[in-house]
Design a protein around this nucleic acid. Sequence first.
DNA 1: TACGAGCTTTTTTTT
DNA 2: AAAGCTCGTA
Length: 792
Amino acid sequence: MDDESFGDVQRPTPLGPGSGRAGDAIPEQLLAGLNQPQREAVEHRGPALLIVAGAGSGKTRVLTHRIAGLLATREAWPSQILAITFTNKAAAEMRERVEQLVGEESRGMWIRTFHSACVRILRREAEEFGFKDSFTIYDSGDVRALLKRLIKERGADIQGLTPGSVAARISNAKNELHDVDSWARTASLENPLDAAFLELWRDYDRELRRANAFDFDDLISQTVFLLRAFPRVAAQYRKRFRHILVDEYQDTNAAQYALIRELTQPVTRAELPDLRADLPGASLTVVGDSDQSIYAFRGADIRNITDFERDFHGARTILLEQNYRSTQNILSAANAVIGNNFDRRAKNLWTDSGDGAKIIGFTGYSGHDEAQFVADEIVELTSAGMSYSDIAVFYRTNAQTRALEEVLIRTAVPYKVIGGTKFYERAEIKDAMAYLITVANPDDALSLRRIMNVPKRGIGPATEAALQAHADQHQITLRDAMRRVDEIALGPKVAAAIKDLAALLDELSARPEADPGEILRELMSRSGYTDQLRRSPDPQDAARLENVEELVAVTREYRRQNPGGNLIDFLTETSLVAAADELDDSGGQVSLMTLHTAKGLEFDAVFITGIEEELMPHRMAAMEPGGEAEERRLFYVGITRARQRLHLSLAMTRAQFGQVNPAAPSRYLEEIPAELIDWRTPPTTMRATSSQRAVGRWRDLPRESFVTGYRDAPKALPKGPKREFANTITEVRDNSGMVLEPGDRIRHKDFGEGRVQAVTGVDKKRVAEVLFDGAGRKRLLIKIAPIEKLSP
DNA sequence: TACGAGCTTTTTTTT
DNA sequence: AAAGCTCGTA
């Protein structure tokens, strides 16, 4: 930690924010190459600045140059700067770019996400606040698990309260900065459902406190409560941070807004007697774009940005509209779509870099067929020289990855799913993490319960209940009850197992500063966890063992990257990783992610898939007030990620929950001018009957773009044999023994017969390039492709 | 207590 | 399609 100094914040110049520029002028090299509004945004000084930054308008550049300017002119020490982003990746990028501009001098800035900044404050002030600084953080899975138990205990499930719904309500309330009591005062408790909910929330908060844990929403709201309850603490942070910058301001919720407000209050000598004079509030710079507000569902309030000038006295607003990212065709599509949202401040993105290629549209027969289009196009793009890592595929829901992954694997396109079912959500990883949490935070009963009988120790629900009863009776923690197992009447075998586990955990808890990787390795081997996996005949357990070993490696790597980082540090970091943080540019892989995850990123080529009614707008979102407009913004965000090539695709049928349903093109597609899209059709999969059915469902606004795409396409298609749905190619296949050479004839389950042109790669990664008689040229991963070799 | 067969549920996006 | 849950049996 390089920036712990609080008492003697140095002030390089006698001038505070709002008092004009300090001695030195901003070096010309920090302003060179900026357009006029960008330059103004870097140079402006005052109490509050709103930078309305359209997609691709260089806002990160402006932010980093602004920070660099503050440092270069000695208006601020690094320790006086707090920059807040939404993801660690954005924070890391910002830090890196500021470092590039001003070098070493940037050390000591706080560039963090909302959540990690709050964790830092909470840990530092934990004692004052009545918490232990070893607190752990519950993710949404933990929250659900805890609520599930509480609901069951109360018998509240009969009232229709589910873990998901209760979790969402608590989360919303906390984001609105309510606590149980303030919420209770506003609610009408005649409603039995509300009354039950309130009881559950009380139980939940009590359990969290007992477990010495916070949920995600607590991290922000408790920090706000802390600052409000302890003016002296608040004054220290207000004195310290003289320049606060917030990225993606349109996505802030009420709690985050309140946090910013708290931190930008002035400080008086009455609060901090060692001050020479009263200090004005920190200067605040926020950057955002209300057209990219896509997080209303987690409490983001668009009014935070639209009302900024009214909220922060003396605010100045600067608009950035020139786009440096995309071609004009892409921008025109984006502008046309977002133009359908009324009630927005007019903004028009433009570029001077030319029209570029047309947008490519594709309608598949099924989601699988659509995925095949994506794979084929990717092969085409990469053989034309584009790198895999410059390509991204977006979708609305995580469930859509299945078809995409199947086809990409088969086609031997390297890819990485960003977010989604993460590594950390696998059962064995959660087990291992629960062991670590139990060591770091002995009060956490949820994690302890999870591992108590994993691996099997004969500690079943009955034994667990006995332990819990003993704990309740003596007002001790579950962990204490395990230590005092002799006081409970249990079988000798079970008692010994409990004692052993407690002893192992206690031994490692006594070494909080040890290498987390070493702690994990010892836990896994001494608890018998790895042995149990190793002995198992289930081949899946071999994979699980590998995952656990991978986690040990990750943990070791953490210590290498963060010398001295202890177990709590490691757990905090892993709790707060965002999906976008997983991106790794070096990988040479196509990135797959949801449209939400895509925000803030950009790629040369972008595929937006599943542009259908019910999916975009999603049927769940379409019902909510403002949902339709938010879904449109989501589509807009997707479009504006593309630099050169944009592909829009949909399918006429979509499988969901194992059922195949007809799908209609999204209303948003109609909003794109027809001349911008070059509609293609699937080469072999569209049948006249089904396409007519789809056209029939198509809304009766026959815009050119669709008519040409739909009416002409089926006629041009070869009338092949009736195809089955391509959705069912999941049987396990292993062709690793198959030897293929150029010239061989093969038959493919979907593509029919073809001739092998070339074979590349080795071993498991052998890829055949095949020219199919009907389906054209494809690349196939030999090991798993649904193919058979025909006699030569 | 452990396990497996057979049943039901899934409802979006994420720090 | 897949994960979670219940209930009966060893």
